[in-house]
Design a protein around this nucleic acid. Structure first.
Length: 507
RNA sequence: GGCCCCUUAGCCAAGCGGUAAGGCAGUGGAUUGCAAAUCCGCCAUCCCCGGUUCGAAUCCGGGAGGGGCCUCCA
């Protein structure tokens, strides 16, 4: 496979040339949510990033298997379910549905499997038993713990020294543990808790082990990419790594990718007792209670595509500060693209911009024209550790270049030569090709929900007003023409006079 | 206390040793009857102080400020 892709690896703290275990194939595992509360914006960062990662790898020719797990049994669920008066499994089901709906809206379509922890209890028990047999774990009164002192390179992902874990003394205290850094693989059930039979009695899996079990089961012993939020590095990923490598005796993941965290200024959130320095951004998290719930954002009319673009406009390893203003700003930037797509359809009314790409698009073909150069720069950014921020910048340059070209050749009034039109269409095809890598502009933005009859009526009335205004302007009665435009503007309708006629647009 | 990471224009942001992409906002112009849309122009020397180098936003050292993890967390 020929490419120049380099990927930053948390394990080595540097960018490395991307390689895979099996030629042409990629196994990618990303940690999904513990499903006890509706997803907030922070939960969307990883999926959008890794969806884009998969899109790019697929673009390069890889066959990618992308797994996102759902942790559906955990203390958090056990506490939350009774509060809502429902069972743990119903809670899990409800929250998972919310998660998936949000992902779908954000055009995260590339996930192949979403395994649930509770569907893999057998696999989990098998690994725990294996770890006990190999001497890496020990049962203790119905629990089972991983013994970090038996794992020579424990802490290698995060530079964590097991000795110093004691010094912290903030770790869960348990007299069952041999040393403070040990963590639970299996937890004995208290009465009324969800429980499964095991060699150590009724209980449930600890956190971390489900990921080791499901990733091995579904993707094999060595993952090409393991992803997740920066906050999962320790202890979650460190422990996953320790378990898996101790059990399988081989490298767990070749590339560890961690996305930056969504932050929010507490003033912008609804926290009552904000901390003294409430002007500094903080991580968005359920436990801090400052989260922006995704489905509420959609209910308020935020376009999913605006959100996706917002997430991709920054490099994935950096934190992103959320604010309403920022979202509105991104939306304004996006408008330029939507207007261009309409322009394209005016120029070539045979084609709908959102139609799929022709299958015969020859990638990398084409002259060293301006559009082709920009396309190349876009791909170079993606090769550089999936630098979507840089790529988005180039997409804007391509947009400007296309508008400039259409202006210069007066394509809108049919003045361009056949060659001009061809060159323009090639450029548009590049734009579509690159947009698809980012997972944007694949379908027309949602129209305001009105029934068909109303829409037709509005269209008819608008045409009536436009025609009347055209007559007034023809008669040089600009005062009347301007009045019509002004009154419409007050209603949120903008008129655009062009050579080919007048367009209208609702804000 | 330990371990990571960040600091670029009014705001967001790319940049990974060769003399600052892009977006939003602002502003001047082309176009327009006037607008809208579009295009063109203007708008930073990169937190501070040292050092390495012919050359540093980019490397090294120190300082200041901020974030994350060490406890559930995407």
């Amino acid at each position: 496979m020929e490419h120049n892709l380099r990927v930053y690896n948390t394990l080595t703290r540097q960018k490395e040339p991307f390689k895979t275990v099996e030629p042409g194939k990629v196994g990618m595992y990303v940690c999904g949510p513990t499903v006890y509360k509706p997803s907030h914006l922070g939960h969307m960062v990883g999926p959008v990033i890794f969806d884009t990662v998969k899109r790019y790898l697929t673009y390069l020719g890889y066959e990618v298997k992308f797994v996102v797990n759902i942790t559906d049994v955990d203390d958090k669920l056990i506490i939350e379910a009774p509060r809502q008066g429902i069972s743990v499994s119903d809670l899990a089901e409800r929250v998972t549905r919310d998660y998936v709906e949000n992902l779908t809206k954000l055009n995260v379509t590339s996930i192949d499997l979403m395994p649930r922890a509770t569907h893999h209890i057998g696999d989990i028990i098998e690994i725990i038993q294996g770890l006990i047999t190999k001497g890496f774990a020990y049962p203790a009164a119905g629990d089972v713990y991983f013994d970090v002192t038996k794992d020579d390179d424990y802490g290698k992902l995060c530079n964590r020294d097991p000795e110093q874990l004691e010094a912290g003394a903030r770790i869960e205290v348990s007299e069952k543990k041999r040393s403070p850094g040990d963590f639970a693989l299996w937890k004995a059930a208290k009465p009324g808790e969800p429980a499964w039979d095991s060699p150590w009695g009724k209980g449930r899996p600890g956190w971390h082990i489900e990921c080791s079990a499901m990733s091995t089961k579904l993707l094999g012993k060595t993952l090409d990419i393991h992803g997740g939020g920066l906050d999962l590095q320790f202890p979650h990923h460190e422990n996953e790594l320790a378990q898996s490598e101790s059990y399988n005796g081989c490298t767990f993941a070749n590339f560890w990718m961690h996305n930056g965290l969504m932050r929010i200024h507490s003033q912008a959130s609804k926290i009552k007792d904000a901390k003294p320095r409430d002007d500094e951004p903080q991580k968005m998290s359920k436990s801090l209670g400052n989260e922006i719930v995704v489905h509420k954002l959609f209910e308020r009319g935020i376009q999913p595509e605006t959100l996706r673009f917002f997430l991709l406009a920054t490099h994935y390893r950096r934190p992103i500060d959320y604010s309403e203003e920022r979202l509105a700003e991104v939306g304004r930037g996006l408008d330029g693209f939507y207007r261009f797509f309409e322009r394209f359809e005016r120029i070539n009314n045979k084609r709908n911009f959102y139609q799929p790409l022709p299958a015969n698009v020859a990638r990398g073909a084409g002259r060293e024209g301006e559009f082709a150069v920009l396309r190349k720069r876009f791909l170079e950014h993606m090769d550089d550790d999936f630098n979507t921020g840089g790529a988005v910048g180039v997409l804007y340059e391509l947009l400007t270049a296309l508008n400039r070209f259409a202006d210069a050749k007066q394509l809108e009034i049919g003045k361009g030569t056949a060659d001009d039109v061809k060159a323009f269409e090639d450029g548009v095809i590049y734009l579509k090709e690159l947009s698809q890598i980012l997972g944007v502009f694949e379908k027309r933005p949602e129209e305001v929900k009105t029934d068909n009859a109303s829409q037709q009526l509005v269209g008819g009335l608008m045409q009536l007003l436009i025609d009347l205004r055209a007559e007034a302007r023809k008669a040089k009665n600009f005062a009347l023409g301007d009045q019509i435009r002004k009154r419409l503007s007050e209603l949120g309708v903008t008129l655009e006079d062009r050579a080919g006629g007048t367009n209208w647009r609702k804000d």
